[in-house]
């Protein structure tokens, strides 16, 4: 690892002060330490936010507030999450390993970086790691890469599960920073690469995630389906998060989010609009997939994700609507 300094903040305010002076935050470190060992990330200064609080889950009439430092394991084990937002618990439990979930945090998970092999390999061209250097993945081994939201500069996916469930649940990311506190709907938190893939999300310099808020549950059936190369402990090739409410045999409300399909956790209102009011059927699922994937473009090794997503969507909708 390249040399760095490590300070320990005792409050959000002291963390934000350290960040204003150029420090990067570290909490669980499960992604950042890995990337630092490979010198993909080379921060000069780190500030530990392990002792600033923000590690409670609280419930009120507006929903659930999950502190940024709540571990993934604690979030998935929380009785309220399991009862009322099971989609989130299922998505978290589908990711990583028990050891990693014990260490990884809610805020850190949102900010985890892509697992594109060219991003990880400093001998390869990667615009996300080194803007302007090119993208080796476009012509390379791109089996895990995105088919939606890509740009000339980058085709890397956001790899996580937790944020996909949060997207289907209309979560809001609460941040604090030099410009004051603000709330960012999770649908606008992650950024598509465009011509600047180095920025994964819309956090400004010095902004700290303090919590994630889940609105009150919809009462729908919540399903998380993850398709991957191994039965456990592997990133998704495609995942589908669904929250579907049926009334008298028809889809009354429907929220669908997709992981490892696009460059960001993916949600498409046109797909949901098509489904609402309809009676579930394989033909309907096919039409929904056609809308979802009309702009999808593979890069060779990941072409399979397009039909795979159509099938994963059909299976998820069948499970969520079968009653």
């Amino acid at each position: 690892m390249k040399a760095f300094t490590l300070d320990h903040a005792d409050s959000s305010a002291s963390a934000i002060t350290a960040m204003a002076a150029g420090a990067r935050t570290i909490a669980g470190g499960t992604n950042l330490v890995d990337l630092m060992k490979l010198q993909v990330e080379v921060p000069d200064k780190l500030v530990s936010i392990r002792s600033i609080g923000l590690n409670d889950i609280t419930q009120d009439d507006d929903g659930l507030l999950i502190g940024a430092l709540v571990s993934n394991a604690d979030c998935a084990a929380d009785t309220r999450v399991r009862q009322s937002w099971p989609l989130l618990a299922k998505a978290i439990l589908a990711g990583a390993s028990p050891q990693l979930r014990n260490r990884a945090t809610t805020g850190g998970n949102l900010c985890q970086r892509t697992r594109c092999g060219y991003f990880y390999d400093t001998t390869q061209a990667c615009n996300k790691r080194e803007p302007g250097r090119g993208c080796a993945a476009r012509e390379g081994f791109n089996r895990i890469h995105a088919v939606l939201g890509t740009s000339e500069a980058c085709i890397a996916t956001y790899p996580g599960d937790m944020a996909v469930a949060m997207l289907a649940l209309d979560a809001v990311v609460l941040v604090d920073g030099p410009g004051g506190a603000r709330e960012i709907p999770i649908a606008r938190f992650h950024r598509q690469p465009g011509d600047d893939p180095s920025r994964d999300n819309v956090l400004e310099d010095g902004e700290l995630i303090t919590a994630v808020r889940l609105p009150a549950p919809t009462g729908g059936v919540q399903v998380y389906r993850k398709v991957r190369d191994r039965a456990s402990y592997a990133f998704a090739l495609v995942s589908v998060a669904a929250d579907v409410t049926m009334v008298q045999g028809r889809i009354a409300r429907c929220a669908l989010a997709f992981g490892s399909l696009g460059t960001v956790p993916w949600r498409d209102a046109a797909v949901e609009d098509l489904l609402v009011g309809e009676t579930p059927s394989p033909a309907l699922y096919t039409r929904a997939a056609e809308v979802l994937l009309k702009d999808a473009r593979g890069f060779g090794a990941n072409d399979f994700k397009i039909p795979l997503t159509a099938r994963a969507l059909a299976a998820t909708l069948h499970e969520a609507t079968k009653g």
């Binding site: 490590l6 320990h8 570290i26 669980g28 470190g29 499960t30 330490v33 890995d34 530990s48 392990r50 394991a73 390993s97 028990p98 050891q99 990693l100 014990n102 260490r103």
Partner: peptide
Amino acid sequence: GACTVIVDGRRMNSCLSLAQLHH
């Protein structure tokens, strides 16, 4: 997972954590 240890009752990967974070 070869580096798994138990920290405050929880298993975790000791390779991915900085020692100074364990005060």
